[in-house]
């Protein structure tokens, strides 16, 4: 078995997600997320090329604009306004959570062998493995981080995983659906931003490890 160029691109996507587990610095995390989304946009464009679907180029362009441009910028500006929690903690030490991410990648590979592949050609089992690994990596990010912004980033990684899964395992979704999901995501990120402001206003911090007692 050897990985094709497209599989290598997919593995780079999964690796950037695992790298996100390795740092608690939110600025670095957002930069990695931008790179990660850019790679997914590249993979979408690649699929558009191999499947001769020009619509996918448009999807890739909007995807890159929204997820690699707007979302990281928006979250970064929120972080700057809410207060510089540049170095937040984690429930699992970051040095340990990366190997956990890789173990999950291996488990996902076993799982992907059992799942039926819908289409042949690009993607297939390897695509399933990496897409599922994004979902588990995002869950790990959401579960183990102290600062509330990381929960948003984890959610976005999960969302990217679902998107990648749908792209590699089906012949592609209708364009309107893709745009709708992107719009949903945009709204979700904005609502999360407003929520962060509210949490900050009520509790004077956004550290979820301290959100253990109820307050009026």
């Amino acid at each position: 078995m050897s990985l094709s160029s497209f599989d290598l691109l997919l593995s780079a996507i999964a690796i950037t997600a695992i790298m996100m587990l390795g740092t608690t610095n939110i600025g670095t995390n957002l930069r990695l997320y931008a790179l990660h989304s850019l790679l997914i946009a590249a993979a979408t464009a690649w699929l558009g090329q191999t499947r001769h679907e020009p619509a996918l180029f448009l999807v890739a362009a909007i995807f890159a604009l929204v997820k690699a441009g707007f979302v990281p910028w928006f979250l970064n500006s929120i972080i700057r306004q809410v207060g510089g929690h540049s170095d937040s903690g984690a429930f699992i030490p970051t040095a340990l959570s990366m190997p956990v991410g890789i173990a999950l990648l291996g488990a996902n590979n076993v799982l992907a062998q059992r799942l039926p592949t819908v289409i042949n050609g690009d993607g297939g089992n390897i695509g399933e493995t990496f897409a599922l690994s994004l979902i588990t990596t995002g869950m790990l990010l959401m579960l183990t981080r102290n600062i509330a912004v990381n929960q948003v980033i984890g959610f976005l990684v999960i969302e990217n995983g679902i998107y990648l899964f749908s792209q590699t395992q089906t012949q592609g979704m209708p364009m309107a659906l893709e745009m709708g999901i992107l719009l949903d995501l945009l709204v979700a990120v904005m609502i999360a931003g407003i929520l962060l402001f509210r949490i900050k206003k009520n509790f004077e911090h956004i550290d979820i490890s301290k959100l253990t007692e109820l307050k009026d």
């Binding site: 690796i15 390795g22 040095a95 990366m98 190997p99 890789i102």
Partner: peptide, 24 residues
């Protein structure tokens, strides 16, 4: 520093995952 070295170990583990996939 352990966090920095963890990146090196991560790449090592990824190599191992790929190698296991290849040999199998």
């Amino acid at each position: 520093l352990p966090e920095f070295i963890a990146y090196a170990i991560t790449f090592g583990l990824l190599c191992l995952v790929v190698a296991l996939g290849v040999v199998k």
